[in-house]
Write a protein that binds this DNA or RNA. Structure first.
Ligand SMILES: [Mn+2]
Ligand SMILES: [Mn+2]
Ligand SMILES: [Zn+2]
Ligand SMILES: [Zn+2]
Lengths: 158, 158
DNA sequence: TCCTACCTTGTAATGATTACAATATAACAA
DNA sequence: TTGTTATATTGTAATCATTACAAGGTAGGA
């Protein structure tokens, strides 16, 4: 359910933004990651192929994507750093306060909940955050991610 | 459903924290406010009666209350400032991105949603944030607050 | 190919939050 | 009540994610 790289790029393009190698790379990385990455974390990954990339560009691109609603901001996960949401389908996010990783949890109730919000504020709802904080069970047994179980293997606790 | 001043103080006391005039005043202000105040905003209000109060003390007290779970953090509301939650009953929060005020919305679906979270992560759920971002309808007609409609009158947009 | 408005980059500024150390005081016991 | 001590408060300095800025680079249309 996460947006593809092309969907993100197309969203930028049709909003009047130019196509650049940096934006292309950033959108690609965004589309590949299901851990709700931070700007710094995206920066480090993209820099591997674009050594001249500036952190400012990452922030600027994320801000553009936010403004057109292609992604949203989930706030922090116990670190003091903004985590970005690429999956705009309604769901619950589970954040681990130890490893600061966030994973998705499928939800049935979320649809009824969003209906309640719509009824209360009408069409003015811009975005939402549904985040629950917890701890991974074990160092070797992090929070289960019902959307992308594979990312569960990458966690390393301090 | 918000905690009373005494409940907050009692929570601190039984957690081994000392009673001080500053903490008493901060807890009182917290119990009276339904707008999910920031540290700065609490500071300004308490300072009216305790002119020597330090902003650091407000942060420290809020941190203590957070640690014992008496309050939670809702994150920011478009400003870059943490808003605190005194009402720990399950509910939806509506944040206005213009005036950065947050109000509560009663919800039926939230109970089913929290049940889903419990089943997924067990007893390890520490706290949650359910926040939807919107805009007040009019300068004179802010977001309706189903818990405390009276606070709706205090909003001033820029 | 040329133009120009938009983008990227490096660096500096911002501002909420936290760290620190000196002073004050709540809580407990004598 | 008084003394003791661990904890709290305060003022100031440091932190650090994010934003602002200005100079040079480039996408995209003519
Ligand atoms: Mn998510
Ligand atoms: Mn609330
Ligand atoms: Zn973890
Ligand atoms: Zn408003």
């Amino acid at each position: 359910m996460a947006k593809s790289s092309n969907e993100l790029l197309e969203a930028l393009k049709s909003a009047g933004f130019r196509m650049t190698p940096q934006r292309t790379a950033i959108c690609y990385v965004l589309s590949q990651r299901f851990d709700h990455p931070t700007a710094q974390s995206i920066y480090e990954q993209v820099r591997a192929e674009h050594p001249s990339l500036s952190l400012t560009t990452v922030y600027q691109t994320l801000d553009s994507l936010l403004k057109i609603g292609a992604i949203t901001s989930l706030g922090n996960a116990g670190d003091d750093t903004i985590h970005f949401e690429v999956n705009t389908d309604p769901h619950i996010n589970l954040a681990c306060l130890t490893c600061h990783r966030i994973c998705d949890l499928r939800s049935e109730a979320i649809h009824a909940l969003e209906k309640e919000v719509q009824q209360a504020v009408g069409s003015k709802v811009l975005s939402g955050r549904v985040v629950y904080y917890s701890e991974c069970l074990e160092k070797s047994n992090p929070l289960e991610c019902t959307y992308h179980p594979s990312v569960n293997q990458e966690v390393v606790h301090g």
